[in-house]
Computed example of a mutant assay.
Amino acid sequence: MNPPLITERNTDVGDLVIASGGKALFTVVNIDKLRLYVNIPQVFKNDIHEGLGAKITVPEYPGKVFEAKVIRSAGAVNPVSGAVLIEIELDNRDHVLSSGEYAQVAINLPSDKAIPRIPASALMIRGDGDYLAVVSPDQTVTLVKVVIGRDFGQQVEVIGNIDPSMKIIDSPPDTLVSGQKVKIANSSEGKVKGKPETKEQAK
């Protein structure tokens, strides 16, 4: 085991040290093992278990994969994000990585759930979450909140109250709101290219 590291020093030679009520003199960490905290979509909650393998990548080591494993799950869904917090442990005895880093995590889940994929351009990313603009038969828009699953680049998995029969607007304008009427320009495989109606168009 490597000795702990001093990552922060708040005093120096000659400083007055108060016995109580002051701030910590040093911050000491042991980075032989690192822990990562990851939010996963609710739909995968039952697939996560202790010992499940995970692969970690960081920007400073492109192409290098660090092996890790899940050690625990919060077991509860966050009502705001709709996600479950899990904890992953990584062996770092060679001190290649540092604490506090951000990393990308890939977990191979033993799941056969059919999760729909949509074009990434169909997502409406707003301050309170991610939405899809769904068009009803009377060409009225409803914004449906979703949780993003795996990202495949041009396509992403989405989890929410959606089904294959829905018509989703591709590349919706940021100003689009629920209840707004749209005019369908083109429809293909469930995707809709639409634009809001103006007063002139609605006549």
Rank of each mutant, 00 (worst) to 15 (best):
I148A: 01
A122K: 03
I162H: 04
P4M: 09
P173F: 12
F66M: 00
Q104F: 12
F26W: 07
V28C: 03
F44W: 12
A24M: 05
I40H: 01
V38G: 01
I86G: 02
V146M: 02
Q154T: 11
I88R: 00
S73P: 08
A114R: 13
H95Y: 12
V158L: 01
K193A: 09
G160W: 03
L90S: 06
L16Y: 12
D151A: 04
I6K: 11
Q155Y: 04
G51D: 02
A106C: 08
F26V: 04
S188I: 14
S73K: 09
I31M: 09
I168D: 02
V58D: 03
I168Q: 01
Q154K: 15
I18Q: 13
P119W: 04
I162V: 13
T198W: 07
R72S: 12
N161Y: 08
D138C: 06
D32Q: 02
S187A: 11
A74E: 15
N108K: 14
R9T: 14
I56S: 04
P164W: 08
L176P: 07
E189A: 13
L90D: 05
H49S: 13
T7Q: 08
R117W: 02
S171D: 08
V13M: 09
P62I: 07
F44Y: 15
F26E: 02
K203E: 09
S98L: 15
D32R: 03
I88N: 00
S136L: 10
E87V: 00
D170S: 14
V96H: 05
A114E: 15
G190R: 10
K181W: 03
V96P: 04
K113Y: 01
K23V: 10
K64V: 12
I48Y: 00
E87W: 03
P116F: 08
R150L: 09
Y131P: 00
K45C: 04
S187M: 11
G22T: 05
A54F: 06
M124A: 09
R126W: 04
E60S: 13
M166G: 05
N46H: 13
V192Q: 07
K183E: 10
K33W: 06
L132D: 00
S136N: 14
G53K: 15
I118D: 03
A106V: 13
L97E: 04
E157I: 02
I86Y: 01
S171E: 11
A103W: 01
V182C: 08
T11K: 14
G75K: 05
